[in-house]
Design a protein around this nucleic acid. Structure first.
Lengths: 111, 111
DNA sequence: AATACTTATCGTATATTTGCGATATAAGAT
DNA sequence: ATCTTATATCGCAAATATACGATAAGTATT
């Protein structure tokens, strides 16, 4: 039980689900907000803003990076993160496409 | 450890994260697709289409319902589900708003 | 009333996520 | 060289999610 069945779905479904999961935590949404609001890429300032331990924030950053939503680069003793707008836009488009397609087919409420 | 810190974030962040989590599984995306493609609200046909056990599908349906993304009503011996377009649109708008706001502020790549 | 059918729920096993402290790593400052 | 500062990683505990079979609960059908 609890075998992973995710591979049995389409690649698009998997990709979208991955993206959704990446932003499916308030902390990660907050991080994205902070990254976007500052003109410079901030690293540890995120820790000051969030109500989480440094190691936890680092973990969330890693997840966002793995999902391709942010880029990171080492800048001296500190790390610099920023939003990968291209990846972001790509996913947002796919999202809108998916749900617009859904909507076209069936607009009437049936229940 | 592993105490839930989600309450320390803004309500908007929590709501969006909830929505994202609801669609953060390929099976649930597939369910939404099926619900939208058929003209009638289908119940058990979803089970036939998905590579999952009936009880698992039922669980996913429950999660989508709890998140407010679908409505369900009992129709004789079977259940009838359909997409709650209003809730859907609300969340999609919030999403777009959030990320458009982010984008306006900072378009230049900094890393 | 008995049966077949459809869906929901319960119990359970396993996997994944969340979170923290402690520790490693790496660069600058002294 | 040593110390400070910033970040990443490791190890662990707790919580949540995923998946299934078994069973319950409800409605038609016979």
């Amino acid at each position: 039980m609890a075998v992973n069945k995710k591979e049995s779905f389409t690649q698009k479904e998997q990709d979208l689900a991955e993206f959704a999961k990446a932003i499916a935590h308030p902390a990660r949404l907050a991080i994205l907000k902070v990254l976007a609001q500052r003109n410079e890429c901030i690293c540890g300032e995120i820790v000051d803003v969030l109500p989480l331990a440094q190691s936890t924030v680092s973990q969330h950053l890693k997840e966002l990076k793995n999902a391709g939503l942010i880029d990171g680069s080492v800048d001296g003793p500190r790390s610099c993160y920023c939003i990968n707008w291209k990846a972001f836009e790509k996913f947002m488009n796919e999202f809108n496409m998916l749900f617009n397609n859904l909507k076209i087919k069936n607009e009437k409420a049936c229940c």
